[in-house]
């Protein structure tokens, strides 16, 4: 009866000023498989882990090209991502049609962020149930943005969303200082390293479950799947998750209460960069189901 009654729609604030429906939508992202994004001075890269619902089914696409200089990777409800990326394609076409120039990445991101905000303030709508990592290249260089159903859009040097993505973030936080000067090839490998950290103990990156996309100056948005990722997977070092070993057995650790944007080391630069390799297990607190 007195269950939380402030969480039935997105037009009701809780007494503390929270919007539970929006917060729940953010949880939907964590139901999706992980995607990782990162940028150097010249390129932006996303890598994604694909899932198939059943053995005979195909793998769900995780990366969608929007324009020659722009694409998105999704975690959460794929149909919502299709709606958003179709909208982005229209925006990109319109920019090309009216102004004869590619849509700036920030404009693209804020266009969907503002759209998403509308769904959190109007009755009879639901927030989008998907998070996106958007990569693109414009006059200012390569960009990586994170889009959230709350209508938030932030630019990152490296980001990861989706199931068990905290492990990837931990990896990125450890290594992001080196990203600006990496070559495209090294950047992709770092992305795959981070993505691999999100895998459950018995899983590996394979040509079937891995997607890679990149974009840069004079490098149009390129999406690699299946056979085309084989060579990239070969570049990973042989030892699985070397950078982030897990304690065996402790796999089903207590469900974490940590939420997005609250890395343990926020604020203390030294603590995170110098963290010992085994400092990551508390990252592994998320749902392990596929």
């Amino acid at each position: 009866m007195f269950r939380n009654s402030y969480d039935n729609d997105s037009v009701t604030y809780s007494p503390t000023g929270r919007l539970f429906q929006v917060e729940y939508a953010l949880e939907a992202i964590k139901q999706g498989s992980a995607v990782v994004g990162l940028v150097s001075k010249t390129h932006a890269v996303v890598v994604a882990l694909k899932r198939n619902a059943e053995e005979l089914g195909s793998y769900q696409k995780k990366i969608i090209k929007v324009d020659n200089h722009l694409g998105v990777a999704l975690a959460g409800l794929a149909p919502d991502a299709r709606v958003l990326s179709n909208f982005l394609r229209q925006q990109a076409m319109s920019s090309q049609m009216v102004y004869k120039r590619p849509l700036a990445v920030s404009r693209a991101v804020y266009a969907i962020a503002d759209k998403a905000q509308g769904n959190t303030q109007q009755y009879g709508r639901r927030p989008y149930g998907v998070g996106l990592l958007i990569i693109g290249h414009d006059e200012a260089g390569p960009h990586l943005y994170e889009f959230l159903p709350s209508g938030s859009a932030l630019e990152y040097r490296g980001a990861a969303i989706g199931a068990r993505s905290q492990a990837a973030r931990t990896y990125l936080e450890k290594k992001f200082d080196t990203f600006p000067d990496l070559s495209l090839e090294e950047l992709i490998v770092e992305g795959l390293n981070a993505l691999r950290d999100t895998l459950a103990q018995d899983k590996e990156l394979t040509l079937k479950n891995t997607s890679i996309a990149y974009v840069g100056k004079d490098t149009p948005f390129t999406l690699l799947d299946d056979d085309k990722v084989v060579d990239w997977l070969a570049k990973l070092d042989g030892v699985s998750r070397k950078s982030n070993p897990r304690p065996t057995g402790g796999e089903e650790a207590a469900e974490g209460t940590t939420t997005e944007g609250e890395p343990a080391a926020a604020g203390t630069t030294a603590a995170a960069t110098d963290a010992p390799a085994d400092a990551a297990p508390d990252a592994d607190t998320m749902d392990t189901t596929e």
Partner: peptide
């Protein structure tokens, strides 16, 4: 608005807009 140097208005952009 929100211009952080990721886009600028060149002559060909203005011309294309006007032609439309």
């Amino acid at each position: 608005y929100d211009n952080s140097g990721d886009q600028s208005l060149h002559s060909e952009n203005i011309f294309n807009y006007l032609s439309k």
